[in-house]
Design a protein around this nucleic acid. Structure first.
Length: 488
RNA sequence: GGCCCCAUCGUCUAGUGGUUAGGACACCUCGCUUUCAAUGAGGUAACACGGGUUCGAUUCCCGUUGGGGCUACCA
């Protein structure tokens, strides 16, 4: 049987990092089994609907490299298209007639009923239950209305929803791929609304109908859905369908161990993109939140994760979304990026900073091991493009003096002037200046510190020789000359 | 409140009926060094608690505690 997993987000604005991890696991599981990764859009809540929500989600998914095989996807120009034969559209709002048909079937068979209770009455009921510490849930007021009578009232236009009938007895037992056996008493499961009064299905009906029609074999989703499984299983039973296997993933947590939320930090994938995190780092980091292959290796590409992934190795407890670890991953991956690749990925950040990288194309190499995100790069190497103002006192090394400096700087400049353009590279600079320092009896710091400050204008920076190489001989000499003027 | 899930260093985690309980991030110390970063060497730090089962439990069972999720005509 062909494995089919799906990721089914709601277009409410952006892709949540927790959603990205769910998508990643579903993607890995599908790919590993040579199956299909399906993307479905669950837009049955018209109040939370955001117009370009689907576009945003797809953008983030494609950015991360999780490309759907089936369902909703991008064409070459980032237009939203659909592919696959899952019984029509993969966007739920375009499948309303399908859900209606299935809801009607349940009503006809006595597995669901019209409910005419108003939201106000249900509110009161809820409050009453809370106050008296009773189990929550619909009290079944409309459950036993004569079906013919209910049908009549409904067709006369009386506002209503459709609820599924949960059995009053027995247990629903199922085997979660991650958690093992889980059981619920049916009497405690609510008669869930499956069709709203606006003619849209609720999640519970839509997800069951769609997963079946789209031939999903494995449902991989967040733990927040665990408690609605008995409802879904009951619907499968009513329809006479076989249920897919299910895996409920542990949640992603804030530092205080509550469910990861916007209030305590960034949760949108696009936020991390904007901050200059690499997809490799995000994917690797997020994959390891709740899963790891067992060894001591930590750096894995998407392809390697696909190879190693298994639901059995997914943990059961929630994982804190720890930015420090993410930063470490990002640093590692920035270091590993080939220079051309780094340049290309960093370009947008330089564009917004108004820095023309082509003026000093090798400048990035200076800071690639010092920054944690791409977004820090422009600020970090700004000094190459424009020497910042600095206090003349900064030029004096802690163990040296202004007097000594006045001798060293001109001598150094003179010496550097003797280099041919050919020899102007950091290795040669380093070895020859080193010899020169020895010959003249200077201490190393007394020369290199001011040289570095003269070239960078900063207290902290990369080493003087690498900067000199990037700047070129002319600009290097110019900056040393400027330093000479400063100390006088 | 009810139902469900979960529990190894601060965090992410490996692991086993008998281990000096391993790694990574973070933190600290030292080394290298012209600064920072990087890097090398070390260090601090965990089996939530109480009962069982067992010759022996961090590991298996039960309970307690703690945390989380759900409890909508939201997903």
């Amino acid at each position: 049987m062909l494995v089919r997993t799906r990721f089914a987000p709601s277009p409410t604005g952006y892709l949540h990092v927790g959603g990205l991890r769910t998508a990643l696991y579903a993607y890995c599981f599908a790919k590993q089994n040579k199956g299909k990764f399906v993307l479905r859009i669950e837009d049955t809540d018209r109040e939370r609907f955001v117009a370009d929500g689907t576009q945003n989600i797809l953008k983030s998914l494609y950015w991360a490299g999780l490309i759907p095989d089936e369902g909703v996807m991008f064409d070459k120009n980032e237009n939203i298209i659909q592919k696959g034969d899952g019984g029509g559209s993969y966007i739920q709002s375009e499948r309303l007639d399908i859900y209606k048909e299935h809801a009607d079937e349940l009503v006809k068979n006595g597995h669901a009923y019209h409910c005419f209770c108003t939201p106000e009455r249900l509110d009161e009921l809820r409050q009453f239950q809370q106050l008296n510490k009773l189990p929550p849930g619909y009290n079944g007021r409309c459950r036993d209305i004569d079906p013919a009578e209910a049908q009549k009232r409904a067709s006369q236009g009386e506002k209503h929803v459709i609820r599924m009938k949960m059995p009053k007895e027995g247990e629903t037992v199922f085997n979660d791929e991650i958690r093992g056996e889980v059981r619920f008493k049916n009497e405690l499961v609510d008669d869930q609304v499956i069709m709203k009064s606006d003619g849209f299905p609720t999640y519970h009906l839509a997800v069951v109908v769609d997963d079946h029609l789209m031939k999903i074999t494995h449902i991989i989703r967040g733990e927040e859905w665990l408690s609605s499984v008995p409802k879904h299983l009951q619907l499968y039973k009513y329809f006479g369908w076989e249920s897919p296997k299910m895996a409920h993933l542990p949640l992603l947590l804030n530092a205080d161990r509550s469910k990861l939320s916007k209030r305590q930090g960034d949760v949108a994938v696009e936020d991390y993109v904007k901050k200059g995190y690499l997809k490799e780092a995000i994917i690797n980091f997020i994959a390891f939140l709740g899963w790891n292959p067992g060894g001591e290796r930590e750096l894995f590409t998407l392809g390697e994760i696909v190879k190693e992934f298994s639901l059995g190795k997914v943990g059961k407890s929630g994982a804190v979304f720890n930015l420090q670890k993410l930063d470490w991953f990002n640093k590692e991956y920035i270091k590993r990026l080939p220079p051309e690749e780094l340049t290309e990925r960093a370009k947008p950040f330089f564009d917004t900073a108004g820095i023309d990288l082509t003026k000093y194309p090798t400048a990035l190499a200076l800071e690639r091991e010092r920054v944690t995100t791409l977004a820090e790069l422009p600020e970090a190497i700004k000094f190459v493009f424009e020497l910042p103002d600095y206090e003349p006192g900064l030029l004096v090394w802690k163990k040296s003096s202004a007097e000594e400096l006045k001798n060293i700087l001109p001598a150094l400049k003179e010496f550097l002037d003797t280099f041919s353009v050919r020899d102007w590279q950091k290795e040669k600079l380093e070895s020859r200046v080193g010899e020169w320092i020895k010959e003249n009896g200077y201490s190393v710091g007394a020369v290199l510190w001011p040289m570095r400050v003269a070239l960078s204008g900063q207290e902290n920076s990369p080493g003087p020789f690498e900067i000199a190489e990037v700047l070129g001989q002319d600009e290097t000499l110019r900056r040393i000359e400027k330093a000479m003027k400063n100390v006088v």
